[in-house]
């Protein structure tokens, strides 16, 4: 059993600088720390070139860190022995294209150490899990990008890893495929598997992640519970039906008023909620919902990146 006190993934003070003769030192990742609790889905967000993939590559030993501690289930994951409980889907997975799907799966099964007697059954089961059971004997050269992505996910799940790292898993997938991947991540979490998800698809991250780390310009810009990050402190969001305009008592307190789907949607100071609800009742409106105001992840992300980019600019 896993020690509950041990983070499933721990990155502490990660740093990577690239040196090239005749060029200035390039700091790709600077003091990034991430802690992922067991059986959670943790999102790693950031714009292109923010250092997400470099951080993941350091975590799985593909890139040598300049500094930092990288652990998976308490073991140093920069060493091969520390990656044996880890499944990894690289961004745009590449495979030997002259193999069929089942041949590729057998190869990865052997590398993972799946016993010979289980290789065929496990390969077939995983192909079926990602919806590729009918393409098992098709050459990978004939696979679409989405099918290769599914195969990448399947190979990452060999040996029932306790930690799975997915780099842009929905890339190249159609909406149904994206939904399947989301469901798969939720299934993995309910099976006790820890998932570290690096993604550009904010809707995907918002839908499945328990916590997120946001990286910008090689540094950690924010980390936390996704609800805490997105909730706007001191504001409440109200949806009202049956009114064309707000009564005066509510109008003076309301902000960001919008008419959506025949309903008025607006935010108010949380302390004024009682007064606003009473005013709407008296004017004959129907309160549809009252909840803490929440940013969309897109808005939060854009604002944070703008802020951290300004801070990083030389004065």
């Amino acid at each position: 059993m896993m020690d509950e006190n041990i983070a499933a993934i721990r990155v502490q003070g990660a740093q990577k600088t690239f040196k090239a003769p005749g060029r200035p030192l390039k700091v790709a990742v600077d003091d990034v720390s991430i802690s992922v609790q067991p059986a959670t889905i943790h999102g790693l967000l950031g714009p292109n070139g923010a250092g997400k993939t470099t951080t993941l590559k350091m975590l799985i030993g593909l890139v040598r860190p300049t500094a930092g501690v990288f652990e998976v289930l308490g073991l140093d994951s920069t060493r091969p022995g520390g990656r044996r409980e880890l499944g990894f889907l690289p961004e745009q997975p590449y495979f030997p294209m002259n193999l069929t799907a089942i041949q590729a799966m057998r190869f990865y099964a052997r590398l993972t150490g799946v016993p010979s007697r289980d290789i065929d059954d496990d390969s077939a089961a995983l192909l079926s899990r990602v919806g590729l059971e009918d393409a098992a004997r098709t050459e990978l050269a004939k696979f679409s990008r989405g099918m290769l992505q599914r195969l990448g996910i399947a190979q990452a799940l060999f040996g029932n890893p306790r930690v799975v790292i997915l780099d842009e898993p929905a890339s190249g997938l159609d909406p149904v495929g994206q939904r399947d991947v989301r469901n798969l991540m939720l299934e993995l979490r309910s099976d006790g598997v820890t998932v570290l998800l690096s993604s550009h698809q904010l809707s995907e991250v918002e839908a499945v992640c328990d916590r997120v780390s946001i990286v910008n310009r090689g540094r950690l810009a924010a980390e936390g519970d996704i609800n805490t990050l997105l909730n706007v402190s001191g504001k409440t969001s109200v949806r009202v039906a049956g009114l064309e305009s707000l009564p005066d008592a509510a109008l003076v307190l309301a902000e960001d008023i919008a008419l959506t789907g025949g309903m008025l949607v607006f935010s108010i100071p949380t302390g004024a909620t009682r007064a606003v609800v009473d005013a709407i009742d008296e004017s004959g409106g129907t309160i549809v919902s009252v909840m803490p105001k929440r940013d969309s992840l897109e808005d939060y992300f854009s604002r944070l990146l703008a802020m951290t980019s300004r801070e990083a600019m030389p004065s």
Binding site: R83, R84, L86, Y94, Y108, L111, T112, F158
Partner: peptide, 17 residues
């Protein structure tokens, strides 16, 4: 170049192996 080595090394295979 084709990055097929990523999937191999991520499986806990050492570079020397």
């Amino acid at each position: 170049e084709r990055r097929t080595v990523y999937n191999v090394l991520a499986k806990g295979v050492s570079r020397w192996e």
